[in-house]
Amino acid sequence: MVKVDESIERARTLLRLRRPADAERELRGVLAVEPQQDMAHCLLAFALVHQGKAAEAMVAAREAVRLVPDHWYPHYVSGQVFLHLGLADPAITAANESLAQSTEHTSTWELLARAHLLKGQWREAADAARSGLAVDPQVPDLVSLLSIAHTKLGEAEPARAAAAHAIQLDPESATAHLAAGRAALAFGDPKAAADSFREVLRLDPGYSPARDLLVSALKQRNPLQRMLSKLRRRYLGGWRLVFLLPVAPPFIAVFILIALLHWAAWVSESVTVLRLTLAKATRLLFEGAEARVAMACCALLPAGIAVLALGIALGQEPVGTAGVAIMALITPVQEATHISSPRGRVVLRVWTGLLVAAIVAALIAGSTGGALLSVYAGLGTIWIAAGARRFFRDHHGAQV
């Protein structure tokens, strides 16, 4: 028995050191001796899920629950496995089953709050965090999650206050600095947000969402980019609006305005990313693909202007219109880059390829109408992208 206890403790240590494969080997040895060891099954579930072995992790978690169904911890472990896999509903169910056994463990309330955040249930997440803080008001991660929930609800002052309190409780908490950065970014202070996200990466260099948020904060430090992004979020132009055109043709002016607004925002995005990519202090933040897309879009703008000027100089209307169509390609290129769903990305890349072919065909045929349709189709990609985001949702859970 002593050897089993020692092995389980070694497995705990290995998990804390982020060595799940070594922990798995240790736990497999325990279960070979004692197959009914519930704690070994619990820790094995953690070791497996951190290696990407989802199916095996769920089997281990279910076995732990089967062995001790009246104990809070196996249900908690099951919920953590589901949360790690981005499955919010089963995680919430498991957390509630754990709470049915005991409400005195703040870790379970934290699990419930994170699961509600994953599902986009901001008010429920705040309530879960408060319930955990009623048990122990000094848990920095619960205070941080409360701040994030307030941020998502648009409640600036409570969000800032909770984040500051979390940092006060634990200045070395990456989650606390993440909460502070999210609040600063959401409520108009990108400089403070960038500083917070840098601190998150210092404390936890492997936390990739902080890198993405830092990039967003750096982009938002550009006043023009900040203004255009805010306007673009405000006027999303949902794909269903397309069905208004047959019954209300005057809406076409609104559509054109929305499309041009999005195009200007994508131009600003391209210029900002290219500038940050070329800067020595920030170039390492940007992946090669992102930098190449920004460079390509920045090249499309002068190329389109040059073709437009050539068309005007030659008196060739199809050539000039094709120049405008080339500039309009910035929208589909950026939309294809920024959609999260792999299938949606394929759809938008194919769409972009078809637009390029249509522009070339219009130039060869000397068709002004074909080139003009390419302009409208390029700018109108925002509605194609909106439909792709709806029908090809990315089911992977975002980290809090």
Results as ranks from 00 to 15, higher is better:
residue 300 L to E: 04
residue 73 Y to Q: 05
residue 363 L to K: 00
residue 268 S to W: 07
residue 307 V to A: 13
residue 228 L to Q: 03
residue 218 L to Y: 04
residue 167 I to Y: 05
residue 334 Q to N: 11
residue 336 A to L: 03
residue 360 V to D: 01
residue 113 A to Q: 01
residue 220 Q to E: 13
residue 5 D to N: 13
residue 136 D to I: 07
residue 305 I to E: 08
residue 112 L to M: 02
residue 182 R to N: 10
residue 138 Q to K: 14
residue 296 A to E: 13
residue 373 L to C: 08
residue 269 E to I: 10
residue 46 F to M: 10
residue 261 L to S: 00
residue 337 T to Q: 12
residue 93 T to P: 07
residue 150 H to R: 08
residue 188 G to P: 07
residue 157 E to T: 14
residue 245 L to N: 09
residue 104 E to L: 12
residue 20 P to F: 13
residue 393 R to F: 13
residue 280 K to Q: 12
residue 398 A to E: 13
residue 287 E to H: 09
residue 351 W to H: 03
residue 382 I to T: 08
residue 355 L to D: 05
residue 338 H to I: 14
residue 32 A to H: 04
residue 268 S to T: 02
residue 37 Q to N: 15
residue 67 L to I: 13
residue 194 A to I: 07
residue 62 R to S: 15
residue 192 A to E: 11
residue 82 F to G: 07
residue 40 A to F: 15
residue 295 M to S: 10
residue 61 A to T: 02
residue 155 E to V: 08
residue 281 A to M: 07
residue 67 L to W: 14
residue 33 V to C: 02
residue 11 A to I: 08
residue 310 L to F: 04
residue 273 V to P: 00
residue 96 N to V: 10
residue 366 G to Y: 06
residue 22 D to W: 12
residue 186 A to K: 12
residue 151 T to V: 00
residue 232 R to Y: 12
residue 377 A to D: 09
residue 292 R to I: 14
residue 248 A to R: 09
residue 188 G to Q: 07
residue 186 A to V: 08
residue 186 A to C: 05
residue 82 F to P: 01
residue 133 L to F: 04
residue 236 L to R: 09
residue 116 H to G: 00
residue 138 Q to E: 13
residue 101 Q to G: 09
residue 391 F to N: 04
residue 318 P to D: 07
residue 42 C to M: 09
residue 145 L to Q: 03
residue 351 W to E: 05
residue 390 R to H: 12
residue 1 M to V: 11
residue 30 V to F: 02
residue 331 T to K: 04
residue 157 E to P: 05
residue 146 L to F: 08
residue 169 L to F: 05
residue 84 H to Y: 14
residue 221 R to W: 02
residue 58 M to H: 14
residue 353 G to A: 00
residue 98 S to M: 07
residue 299 A to T: 10
residue 373 L to V: 02
residue 251 F to T: 12
residue 201 L to N: 02
residue 43 L to K: 08
residue 130 R to P: 00
residue 123 R to V: 15
residue 89 D to G: 04
residue 252 I to G: 03
residue 160 R to F: 14
residue 71 H to W: 15
residue 47 A to Q: 05
residue 384 I to N: 01
residue 159 A to R: 02
residue 335 E to L: 04
residue 354 L to D: 02
